[in-house]
Amino acid sequence: MKIKSSVGDRVFNIVNVTLMIIICFLTLYPVWYIIVYSFNEGKDAMLGGIYFWPRKFTLDNYKTVFSNSDITTAFMVTVARTVITTTLHVFFTSMVAYAFLRKELMGRKIYMAMGTVTLFFGGGLIPYFLLIKSLGLYNTFWVYVIPGMFNFYNLIIFQAFFRELPIELEESAKIDGANDFVIFTRIILPLSTPVLATIALFVGVYNWNDYFMGVIFINNPKLQPIQTFLYKVIAQVTSNQMLAYAPGGIATRNVTSQSLKMATMVITTMPIVCVYPFLQKYFVKGLLIGAIKG
């Protein structure tokens, strides 16, 4: 029997749908505007009146950006940083989390207490900078990788997931002669795809979007990530310098510093946006497991 909804329910649903449409539009339109602006001629875009699609479509902005070797280098640095750091972070943090669950680990409670303190207190930027410099990581590519290999908050998430795995799997593997490392790599990790994908997405997005490390700890332009490059494009005169790299005639006809900024924004954000849909199903599943069982 079909139950008819009341007038109040219908009004409530209409208001909810209307509000969600407005919120979605306000969230997505700025991104869409940047994309539209980046594909429009810079000189024409300065006249205004561009809202939903390019008035004079062109690829000159992107040609100019990619003609600058600095952005290509920065892009490759960011890709390498994101892939290496995310891979090592997921493996190392999950391995430490699995070890901390072993009751036979000496000093386990002390390690957990020390790690918990770091969630609430930090040494500050200056001590951290001095530490990085004393370790010889300043102005090297490894300043992106080594400090990012471990995070105690993510360790707690891994532990919450590992506790829900059947203990019988480990016991049967030990009977067959497997050690802890074999159990971890061949049994625990393959069963932990949702939480691995969730943490990988968090860490990957952070490393892709981070510009602060490149500003504070990198002095070599060849080692700056793409977000640091974008920061300099927006905050400094780099966009005007990029006009000098434009293929013959483009700079004077179509390209402006503002259109270059928009094109650079699109280039820096689209790769990580395209990766997200492939991890979304694992991401949602990982969050649900943590919410229900953790």
Rank of each mutant, 00 (worst) to 15 (best):
Y211S: 09
M213V: 05
Q227L: 04
L196K: 07
L191S: 10
L230H: 00
F212S: 08
A173S: 09
E171V: 13
V215G: 06
S172I: 11
A200E: 00
A178Q: 12
R186H: 12
L189N: 02
L189I: 15
F229I: 03
F202E: 03
F181C: 10
L191K: 10
L191F: 06
I183V: 14
I183C: 13
L230A: 04
F184S: 00
N179A: 06
E168C: 08
V215A: 13
L191V: 01
S192Q: 07
W208V: 01
E171P: 10
K222D: 14
L196N: 12
P194E: 05
D176C: 09
I175C: 04
Y211T: 00
T185Q: 13
P221K: 02
F184W: 14
S192E: 08
I187E: 01
P194M: 06
L196G: 05
P190V: 06
V205R: 01
L196V: 06
V233P: 07
N219C: 01
E170A: 06
K174M: 14
F202T: 00
I167D: 11
L223Q: 07
I218W: 08
I199L: 12
P190D: 07
V205S: 07
I199F: 04
F212H: 02
K232W: 08
N179M: 04
L230N: 04
F202K: 03
G177K: 09
I216M: 13
M213E: 14
L230Y: 11
W208K: 07
Y211G: 05
G214T: 10
N219P: 07
V195R: 05
I175D: 00
P225L: 04
L223F: 11
A200H: 12
V203R: 11
F229H: 08
L169P: 05
M213D: 15
P225Y: 09
P225K: 07
A178Y: 10
K222Q: 15
E168I: 06
G214L: 09
T193G: 11
P190L: 11
E170L: 08
L223E: 04
K222H: 09
L201M: 15
E168Y: 11
F217W: 09
I199R: 00
A173R: 07
N209Y: 05
P166C: 09
F217Y: 15
T193F: 13
I183A: 03
E171I: 13
T198K: 10
V182E: 14
V215K: 06
V205I: 15
L189C: 13
A197L: 11
V182D: 11
